[in-house]
Simulated scan of single mutants.
Amino acid sequence: MTTAKRVRDPEAKRAAILAAARSVFAEHGYDKATIRQIAERAGVTHGLVMMHFATKAKLFVAAVPAQHLADKVVGDVEGLPERVARAYVERMTSAEGCNPFIALVRGAATDQDDAKSLLRAMRETSVEIYRGMLDDEDVPQRADMLGALFMGVAYSRHVLADGPIAAMTPDELIRYMTRAIRAILLGHDNI
């Protein structure tokens, strides 16, 4: 009797985990999705998921569609605010059921520890991206302020879905957000 030889392919397993996470988060939302469900769907162990991602929050941030902000904001610094606004609005429009800002806002009401963990993971990712583009010492503060803007817009537009921000077209929202992002990231006060 011959036994099947196990094939080790960490990148394939990581891709399977991310695909499973996207579908489980979309089906159950951030709060109700579990690492065990994701591992089972990916055909891997709970421990392997944790080895690759360490926390549910880090897995969520890595798995959500269009979360690869670094790819979307590449270019000159002066055009950065508009690219960030456009990437945010497009992500919010296309991935509403599996969006980190909506999950964070909704999750804060039910589980503050989970919400804090998700916020930390999102913050780390953002700071890393913006440090590569901006050379200011206060990049963590700017990234955090930008995150607060995004959460506020997510709350107004997608959770409460009421008021002028909720009523804006995507292009209008991009225009308004570009001005605010320009002030936050580049320090231009003429918003």
Results as ranks from 00 to 15, higher is better:
125 T>K: 14
121 A>V: 08
62 A>R: 09
85 A>T: 07
122 M>Q: 13
86 R>N: 02
73 V>M: 02
111 D>Y: 12
109 A>I: 01
121 A>I: 06
51 M>C: 07
111 D>L: 12
120 R>Q: 12
112 Q>Y: 12
141 Q>G: 15
142 R>Y: 06
60 F>K: 03
50 M>H: 13
157 R>K: 08
121 A>E: 10
97 G>W: 03
143 A>P: 04
53 F>D: 07
102 I>M: 00
58 K>Q: 13
120 R>S: 13
73 V>P: 00
154 A>T: 00
81 P>H: 01
146 L>Q: 02
128 E>Q: 15
86 R>P: 02
133 M>V: 12
129 I>Y: 11
49 V>K: 02
59 L>V: 00
158 H>E: 13
113 D>G: 13
53 F>V: 08
151 M>C: 15
80 L>M: 14
156 S>D: 06
104 L>C: 05
136 D>P: 05
92 M>Q: 13
116 K>C: 05
112 Q>H: 13
72 K>W: 14
118 L>V: 03
155 Y>N: 10
81 P>M: 06
161 A>P: 00
163 G>F: 07
133 M>Q: 13
129 I>C: 05
147 G>D: 10
104 L>D: 05
101 F>S: 01
102 I>T: 03
82 E>R: 10
56 K>S: 01
85 A>K: 03
149 L>V: 03
48 L>K: 08
151 M>N: 12
148 A>R: 13
159 V>E: 01
104 L>K: 02
127 V>E: 14
158 H>A: 09
